[in-house]
């Protein structure tokens, strides 16, 4: 999809058009705990959306660095649901098959997502193991920690699930449907 079509698609989502209300005050960027790691801080990202630079927006790591702390959202003087828009951008990037240069967060979320789709519950150790196959150093740096947790009987090694995971196979059809980002 080209930039223009992507921009229209974004505006059609539930709160997408709210970026037009942005006064570029920078409160969101100043409130964000990880803005210094982002390719574009939230204020800048919104300017790019309005300029129609959607490819650059969806390729950026900004939305993936968003931890959903909602700090920007409760402070924005224009009451723009900044965090919700970050979710929309993540979903759009996935839909369009666009991943940022560092794929760590998409990989982590995807691993989480697949586990829950299959089992209905998440086992943190499984998340670490599966994610670790793609990013071994992140898991290895946590190996000492794993030993400490094990000593305190805090490592769950038996995979958790709901009683009959087969019963939730409808999650897979929900997965293929995706209600357009509301």
């Amino acid at each position: 999809m080209d930039d223009r079509r992507l921009q229209l698609k974004f505006y059609e989502t539930h709160d997408g058009k709210d970026v037009l209300k942005c006064i570029q005050c920078g409160t969101c960027s100043g409130s964000c705990p990880l803005s210094d790691k982002m390719d574009y801080a939230p204020r800048e990202l919104f300017a790019l959306i309005r300029d129609g630079e959607m490819e650059a927006v969806l390729r950026s790591n900004t939305q993936w660095y968003c931890v959903s702390c909602y700090q920007c959202m409760v402070r924005c003087p224009q009451e723009i649901p900044v965090t919700d828009l970050m979710y929309i951008l993540k979903q759009m990037a996935i839909e369009q098959g666009i991943s940022p240069k560092t794929a760590k967060m998409p990989d982590l979320y995807m691993t989480f997502y697949r586990e829950v789709l299959k089992k209905g519950r998440l086992t943190e150790a499984m998340l670490m193991i599966r994610y670790g196959m793609k990013h071994p150093t992140d898991t290895l740096s946590n190996a000492f920690l794993a030993v400490k947790l094990l000593k305190r009987r805090r490592l769950e090694i038996i995979p958790q699930s709901i009683k009959e995971p087969k019963r939730i196979s409808y999650l897979k059809s929900a997965d293929s449907e995706r209600t357009e980002t509301k």
Partner: peptide, 15 residues
Amino acid sequence: NCCGATAVFSINSSV
């Protein structure tokens, strides 16, 4: 079942 947390909402809101 798991609520899906930040991860699932980031991937697909229907799920």
